[in-house]
């Protein structure tokens, strides 16, 4: 079987900060990582390949530096890695991104067939969760999102568990299909030394805009219907009463509890030992 994993190299968002003085984005020194959800998608593809046989290809769109993440994927055991990188891709929103990825996948499908496409449920730098479904639509294959377990995969069909708000759904789809996955799906493996060696020497294929069929109107800024019109520091609620409780925490606590009861914010018989219903 041929498993293709779409992965994105993202800045580690827990480290992206706004400079408090100048209110500008501080991008220097922010490490890049494989989008964590995508890493779980890769792990699942590797595990399925190890069981069912076949091949894992990783596909990423991004600047030339994104080869670092692809090498990392190879060190974990991916067989092949392709980077889609071209200036013409810059400024793509989710719609244009899914177009570019889908066109590359289409080329791969024609050349070597695809049984399953795997993506993370969303990227931590954008949190949109749109590219996975976008690819599925464009390739006209069924999608199963928020996957937390793969029951089985066999010729022509897959069964998974999907995480919904109020439980889990067991669903089946015909192959080829696209999954977007949650972190609970699996534990990411450690790379073996031979794979580390292979990755260090591996040169991912780099496809520019001329390497596969693309229409200029559908990619980059031109192919992106959405645009940012302004950015700003989030407006907050204005703070209420602040009690300095450094010297005498005991009486500060008593004073606060008193106020909460007085204003009926907390009541003697707790209303909610379970929930609103």
């Amino acid at each position: 079987m041929h498993f293709v994993v779409c992965l994105k190299q993202v800045p580690d968002t827990s480290e992206v900060r706004i400079d408090p003085k100048t209110n500008t984005l501080m991008r220097e020194g922010v490490p890049s990582i494989i989008n964590p959800y995508d890493a779980h998608a890769l792990e699942e593809a590797l595990a399925l390949r190890d069981k069912a046989g076949g091949k894992v290809t990783v596909l990423s769109m991004g600047p030339p530096q994104a080869v670092d993440s692809l090498r990392k994927a190879v060190s974990l055991g991916a067989d092949e890695a392709i980077l889609l990188s071209d200036r013409a891709f810059a400024g793509s929103d989710t719609l244009a991104t899914s177009y570019i990825l889908a066109q590359a996948l289409e080329k791969i499908r024609q050349e070597q067939g695809i049984d399953l496409v795997l993506c993370g449920k969303q990227a931590i730098d954008g949190d949109t969760a749109q590219v996975g479904p976008g690819i599925a639509r464009r390739l006209d294959i069924p999608q199963l999102t928020y996957v937390i377990k793969v029951d089985w995969i066999k010729e022509g069909e897959i069964q998974v568990h999907r995480k919904l708000e109020d439980g889990r759904e067991v669903a089946r789809a015909k192959l080829p299909a696209l999954l977007t996955v949650e972190k609970e799906l699996n534990e990411i493996r450690y790379a073996t030394f031979p794979n580390m060696l292979r990755a260090a020497k591996y040169e991912p294929l780099v496809w520019g805009a001329d390497k596969f069929h693309l229409s200029p109107a559908e990619m980059g800024l031109k192919g992106s219907p959405t645009s940012v019109s302004r950015i700003f520091a989030p407006p907050g609620r204005t703070g209420g009463e602040q009690i300095m409780a450094i010297d005498d925490p005991g009486s500060a606590a008593i004073s606060l509890v008193g106020k909460l009861f007085q204003q009926n914010i907390i009541m003697v018989h707790p209303i909610a030992r379970g929930g609103r219903d």
Partner: peptide, 9 residues
């Protein structure tokens, strides 16, 4: 010997 699987070099 490294700490990785199949890690003898």
């Amino acid at each position: 010997r490294t700490g990785r699987a199949e890690g003898d070099v």
